[in-house]
């Protein structure tokens, strides 16, 4: 069974292409996106999605990735509650990806980088979650099952990257691809809807490329032939908070 599943996964594209044809029910048109089809077999650990961020290419003052993430996941549809101050709203609104600008204390060298969920191999947020709502998918994506999240926020206490946000107010506008609502915790899920629909990259990667920076690379860390794996072999990269030995799926170069 597992073997069969593995084979299926390796040839997922081809398989899905064929399956999609079969799956089209009478009277239902398949809405295709860039030739990809929705996933029909469970995700497996044959792949591990990750990002490589070249901080040398990350431009000072550019927030294209942040804006793209907000739009992709409908974070921009959440509005400031009436009567809330701007300062407080800035601390309470959801942030899945943020820009940070660092200066080396010794040398004064400036580094710009985006920071989001680092998709740890051994995520502290998953360890601490009392209900198992915070979980790691087989393909390495760390995310929240909002159906079982009770909003205790212990994962936010445990995350070494402050990557998670709590939804502090009622959300009335959501995107179909990114359901989200009051009282649950959320964070970057590497555009999981795109993964499941067989799309190529993430919103932040696309936005960065559109700006001409190409500072973020998305791909399968387990596939030695993938661009990201080859880059990781060729150039030096680091993890944030390497001391915790979390084996993050997001790596940084030139940091």
């Amino acid at each position: 069974m597992t073997e069969a599943r593995d084979t299926i996964d390796r040839n997922r594209r081809a398989f899905l292409g064929a399956a999609a044809g079969l799956a089209v029910a009478p009277g239902v048109l398949l809405h295709t996106v860039a030739g990809a089809a929705p996933r029909s077999a469970p995700v497996t650990s044959d792949v591990r999605w990750g990002l490589l961020i070249d901080t040398a290419k990350c431009a000072d003052g550019c927030t294209a990735c942040v804006t793209a993430c907000d739009e992709e996941n409908g974070l921009n549809l959440q509005v400031k509650p009436e009567g809330q101050s701007e300062a407080k709203w800035a601390q309470q609104r959801s942030v899945w990806i943020r820009k940070a600008k660092l200066q080396d204390n010794q040398t004064g060298r400036i580094t710009n980088l985006p920071l989001m969920c680092q998709h740890c191999e051994r995520p502290p947020c998953v360890d601490v979650c009392p209900t198992g709502a915070s979980f790691k998918r087989a393909d390495g994506i760390v995310m929240v099952d909002r159906h079982t999240c009770i909003g205790c926020r212990y994962c936010m206490m445990a995350c070494p990257y402050k990557a998670r946000s709590f939804i502090h107010e009622k959300v009335t506008a959501q995107l179909t691809r990114a359901p989200r609502g009051k009282g649950c915790v959320e964070s970057c899920n590497l555009c999981v809807h795109r993964r499941d629909n067989g799309q190529e990259s993430t919103a932040c990667v696309d936005a960065c490329a559109r700006e001409g920076h190409q500072a973020i690379l998305f791909g399968d860390l387990k596939d030695p032939a993938s661009h990201i794996s080859q880059m990781l072999t060729a150039i030096a990269s680091r993890q944030i908070r390497e001391d915790l030995a979390l084996n993050t799926g997001v790596r940084y170069s030139n940091i």
């Binding site: 799956a23 089209v24 239902v28 048109l29 398949l30 809405h31 996106v33 089809a37 929705p38 909002r146 959300v171 959501q174 995107l175 179909t176 691809r177 359901p179 989200r180 609502g181 009051k182 009282g183 649950c184 555009c191 809807h193 795109r194 499941d196 629909n197 799309q199």
Partner: peptide, 20 residues
């Protein structure tokens, strides 16, 4: 509480085999 209450309007990467 969380899910959209209107169809996806052809949203990209929407999570179901959407109809026309």
């Amino acid at each position: 509480d969380c899910h959209a209450t209107v169809p996806s309007q052809g949203e990209q990467g929407q999570g179901s085999p959407s109809r026309s």
